[in-house]
Simulated assay, not measured.
Amino acid sequence: MWNLPNLLTLLRIILVPVFVVLFYVEAPWSSYAAALVFGAAALTDWLDGYLARRWEQTSPLGAFLDPVADKLMVAVALVVLLQADPRILMALPVMVIIGREITVSALREWMAEIGARAAVAVSGLGKIKTIAQMVSIALLILRESVFGPWVYDIGVALLYIAAILTLWSMAFYLLAAWPSLAGKKSIADKSEKSA
């Protein structure tokens, strides 16, 4: 159960409070340290999944912890960034991204209960969204870096791109789940009949 992929996922959860503390430390190096911690967490997000598949070490614990760790770090980072820059410019994409994560998580849980979890599995579009989201957040964390204000502006632009991709991917998930949501024949029933 406590294999390396699961330990990396657990490390990602442990890094959440470390990130928050570093973000609020009033020191010239704090934004760099916070961005580094966030980047390390994003890297473990890719690495734990890769290792689990490569070494065939997937487990129920890992399947549960991985999405929790991902959403926890992203949601906390977005909340502290919004607190640091409470303009509507930031509030809109943050609201969209967090709202989408809650909606899709609930949808996946419900689809799993009716045996149709595969219909809302992570898509290629979802992966592109995640990359845009992670890069944007990292750039936004470097809000007062030596690189200049353009870094923050690029971060905001990427956050809007991530928000648009977020809505787009959510629409695909809802469309795939719609037969079940509308009370028609479930996807699981259809697959059983075709088998």
Score class of each variant (00 low, 15 high):
Ala84Arg: 14
Ala91Tyr: 04
Val94Pro: 02
Val68Tyr: 08
Pro67Ile: 12
Pro67Arg: 12
Val76Cys: 11
Glu101Met: 01
Val94Met: 14
Arg100Lys: 15
Val96Asp: 01
Leu81Trp: 08
Arg100Cys: 07
Arg87Ala: 13
Leu82Pro: 00
Ile88Ala: 14
Asp66Trp: 07
Ala84Cys: 01
Gln83Ala: 15
Lys71Asp: 09
Leu82Phe: 14
Ile98Gly: 00
Arg87Lys: 13
Asp66Pro: 08
Asp66Cys: 09
Ala69Tyr: 06
Leu81Glu: 09
Ala75His: 03
Asp85Cys: 01
Ala84Ser: 12
Arg87Glu: 11
Ile88Trp: 15
Val68Pro: 04
Pro86Ile: 07
Val80Ala: 05
Val96Thr: 04
Ala91Gln: 10
Arg100Tyr: 08
Ala69Asp: 03
Val76His: 11
Val80Met: 03
Ile88Pro: 00
Pro86Lys: 08
Leu78Pro: 03
Lys71Thr: 08
Leu92Asp: 00
Ala75Cys: 13
Ile98Asp: 05
Ile88Asn: 12
Gln83His: 13
Asp85Met: 14
Val76Trp: 06
Ala69Asn: 07
Ala75Thr: 15
Gly99Pro: 02
Leu72Lys: 11
Glu101Ser: 01
Leu92Met: 12
Ala77Met: 02
Met95Trp: 13
Val76Gln: 09
Val74Ile: 15
Leu81Gly: 10
Asp66Thr: 10
